[in-house]
Design a protein around this nucleic acid. Structure first.
Lengths: 119, 119
DNA sequence: GTCATAATTCCATAATAATCGAATCATAGG
DNA sequence: CCTATGATTCGATTATTATGGAATTATGAC
């Protein structure tokens, strides 16, 4: 995975609707979701949704498959993992972070949202 | 780390010069690098470099410290790890689907909020 | 204070990205 | 063929981001 590709992937995720879309698709699992269902779920108009889905697909983060009249989008876990791999290898763990300044084993984060929207 | 913050971090890294800058700073380690040295190293004019450094700093990915006439920038490993943590927890590993794997109906991630500011 | 250096801010410009209604394309069912 | 539905493309508009020269601020040495 070269940097141009990584930049496209990062840029694809660096947008409110697209990050939400990707997360939704990850939760949807291998079944995926139809474009319209995603749009409705996120409250984004169809034409805007298409634009964002195209961006994500172009970045290789999601794949599409027509199924009758619907087009089903699915998160590409492998692509996500490749991105993570690039970031950890080249941006973080790949460097011998000396001593205490090194990458701590436990990311101290604040996670406010509990994601479960089966409703 | 809430999604707005994540989006800023992703957006900060989703740019050629900034990704290169961040990687350079990671390699530089805790010593960091002066703004001018980074600019020269990447072949970016000073004013543009300042702009990009500000973006990265604003996203919390790097920190700055004046040292005599230079301003030394350092990669914030913790912030990077927090970003990774968010992505793995909420976008990837949170749903145990690696590749084609089965997605057990258990997407509920009940994470006890460990509040720790990453500024 | 003056000069030199390091970096930033200012500002105008150019380039890219986001939005969304309307038109179009693709498929399915009668 | 005709109609309905799901989705995309088109096109015009707005918003955001990137660029880099010139002016400015901050520090250090004399």
């Amino acid at each position: 995975m070269e940097s141009a590709h990584v930049i496209r992937a990062l840029g694809a995720l660096a947008q409110e609707h697209r990050l939400a879309t990707f997360r939704l698709l990850v939760q949807a699992g291998p079944e995926g979701m139809a474009a319209g269902a995603i749009a409705e779920s996120l409250g984004v108009p169809p034409s805007s949704m298409s634009f964002h889905l195209a961006q994500l697909a172009n970045a290789g983060l999601i794949t599409s498959l027509r199924q009758s009249r619907s087009i089903i989008y699915t998160a590409d876990y492998a692509a996500m993992n490749a991105l993570m791999g690039y970031l950890t290898t080249n941006c973080c763990a790949g460097v011998p972070c000396t001593a205490e300044a090194s990458c701590p084993p436990q990311p101290t984060i604040t996670i406010p949202t509990i994601t479960k929207d089966v409703a």
